[in-house]
Design a protein around this nucleic acid. Sequence first.
DNA 1: ATGGTTATGTTATCATATAACACTTTAAGG
DNA 2: CCTTAAAGTGTTATATGATAACATAACCAT
Lengths: 192, 192
Amino acid sequence: MNESDSANNPRFSRSVSVGRAESVSPMASAHDHTACIERALKEADLLCANADVRLTELRRKVLELIWQSHAPLGAYRLMEMLEQASDRKRVAPPTVYRALDFLIEQKLIHKVHSLNAFIGCTRPRQPHGDALFICRECGFTEEVASKPIQQAINLSASQQRFEVEDQFMEIIGRCAACRAKQKSGASQEELL
Amino acid sequence: MNESDSANNPRFSRSVSVGRAESVSPMASAHDHTACIERALKEADLLCANADVRLTELRRKVLELIWQSHAPLGAYRLMEMLEQASDRKRVAPPTVYRALDFLIEQKLIHKVHSLNAFIGCTRPRQPHGDALFICRECGFTEEVASKPIQQAINLSASQQRFEVEDQFMEIIGRCAACRAKQKSGASQEELL
DNA sequence: ATGGTTATGTTATCATATAACACTTTAAGG
DNA sequence: CCTTAAAGTGTTATATGATAACATAACCAT
Ligand SMILES: [Zn+2]
Ligand SMILES: [Zn+2]
Ligand SMILES: [Zn+2]
Ligand SMILES: [Zn+2]
């Protein structure tokens, strides 16, 4: 298990590359990610205060670690990061799963079911059910709220008299950055 | 682990009720399910012959067992069923997972990621990526191909210059049958 | 027949998630 | 303040889902 898994593994099945300070998604240099993290945490503070629930130190730390990158993060990888980040000797699965459950309940993160991983939600106030566009190569995951998609689903549901309670949309492929990268590298690859 | 899990477990997380001859989904009595199974197997025979791949006895048996109901079936439950169905002493995970991988490649089944389970595909010839409407109560899962949904996704992808390779849409809720059942049972429940 | 290829069997292990119960912190009421 | 119930966290064990690695068997084209 190492941090280049997501680049090597064709199925990008787990342990996605996540910022250990230097290993980062291609978007990391394209924006001030520190601002992303701060904004997310501040938003979480507000929402939890509003909902009268407690964003404890642990829960907040977990949220911060998930926001270390825009790529989904597995629970066990998160455990390792928690151990490093805090002075703790060991963090056991229930600890992290309980924090994850809380964050999901408060709609602060999403579970990415096709990867068994978790990612920060970019619109915690809006109704959930957005589509997640997940780059197979770099892990970068974009949450997209699309009214046409939602309307299409609602129409289909009502036609079946199906009562929607929750929904997961995960679209796997290659992000714009990775496509551009390949295109520019094509000439070199031919030299092999 | 027993066959009434899907009714008891609020998250309907696994081991969905599947036809052991009498435990069945609410739709089971509403249609000739034997015909569903036969049609699916016949279709699979044709498609595999066409693709020049081998639908071996094991793979065909796995497909048949998955089609025992319209509810997703977990790999380990499937293993148990294989042991019972055949005279085999023991079926190990790799055996069933390899068959599942094959069936997924041939687009004969879908993986239901939010349940870690598998379900027969009702349109193995069409391009995949349909939405799965999954009843939380009875497990009944309906595959719906919606052109509006697909168009909305494609539009959103092209706007981001995202290249779609695969997609999963899982909508959780309550099917028409289960909603009707509850409505008719409402008066009795009030007596409690 | 024979040898390469594909499929299956077998054992071990990894990866993900939860149950059960103990202990600690928090916040509310007296 | 002090008590105390509730909420949160720690700890151990275990359930559940999936794959690696290698051995054997079936298939099929010469
Ligand atoms: Zn960012
Ligand atoms: Zn990318
Ligand atoms: Zn049927
Ligand atoms: Zn139902």
